[in-house]
């Protein structure tokens, strides 16, 4: 559950894209160790941009992102080192199509010399076993279903032993019958105490698994609350409107 031990703090982050579109407008939030935070909101509200600012895949135009007490938006920060601590799962999986499943998982840990190849492969097999896909270790991504790809993408991120996992609409590109298997893996992760930030349209997941829910609209954080409060007693008109449309 939410503790006061914060791991990520976002301070007054703004992001304006080259075309002049303001994707984030003065957003601040904190995320505690072991917390599961869902970000919901209409499309184009800046949810994904917010998430991508957390590991600086998107560089904020202004504001600070502080991870483990270090401002990662400062110059001369070793971003690569910080990104190792933050696993990321993408909407479109982004598995490396030219590598086997096992190589997808072991590439970064071996390349970055965090593990020997043998260790990395043993870890990969253990992780694959946990999600029931050990038999796919030598398969290529093109041979897998969307649900399998996404579960492997999660495992690939986990192989770096991250402190935080970021999920960018992890089930949006999946056929409906495959959503469940991915959400199950995510639930298991949450129960194991992983700190998670999840951009999602799965309100069931946000309500059931999340400690807090952030509602965003037009680049602003409109409302932050526990799932039951936010879903059952939304404080803002815009939250109410959004929820009335999707629930």
């Amino acid at each position: 559950m939410a503790t006061s031990n914060e791991i990520i703090r976002v301070e007054h982050v703004c992001k304006t894209f080259d075309g002049g579109i303001k994707a984030l407008d003065d957003c601040s939030l904190t995320i505690g160790q072991g917390e599961v935070v869902s970000i919901i909101g209409p499309s184009g509200s800046g949810k994904s941009t917010m998430l991508r600012c957390l590991n600086l895949l998107e560089v904020p135009t202004s504001g600070k992102v502080i991870v483990d007490g270090v401002d990662i938006t400062a110059d001369k920060v070793d971003l690569d080192k910080h990104r190792r601590k933050m696993g990321m799962v993408f909407q479109h999986f982004n598995l490396f199509p030219n590598m086997t499943v096992k190589r997808n998982i072991t590439l970064a840990p071996v390349r970055l010399k965090l593990k020997s190849r043998a260790e990395a492969e043993a870890d990969a097999m253990r992780l694959l076993d946990r999600i029931g896909l050990a038999d796919k270790a030598d398969a290529y991504p093109s041979m897998l279903s969307g649900g399998q790809k996404q579960r492997i993408a999660i495992v690939r991120a986990l192989a770096m032993q991250p402190e935080v996992m970021l999920f960018d609409e992890p089930t949006s590109a999946l056929d409906p019958e495959m959503v469940g298997e991915v959400l199950d893996v995510m639930k298991e992760l949450a129960l194991a105490g992983m700190t998670m930030v999840v951009v999602t349209h799965e309100m069931g997941f946000a309500r059931e698994v999340g400690d807090r829910v952030i509602f965003m609209d037009s680049g602003k954080i409109v409302e932050v609350n526990t799932p039951s409060e936010l879903f059952d007693h939304p404080q803002h008109e815009r939250t109410r409107l959004f929820l009335s449309k999707i629930l």
Binding site: N94, F96, L107, A108, A157
Partner: peptide
């Protein structure tokens, strides 16, 4: 090559050079 490939590599902590070379 899909931009997501480089993003995935970077998100795993690989440098731009590694991402380019390996992925």
């Amino acid at each position: 090559v899909d931009a997501g490939q480089m993003e995935a590599a970077r998100s795993l902590g690989l440098s731009k050079f590694d991402g380019m070379q390996l992925v």
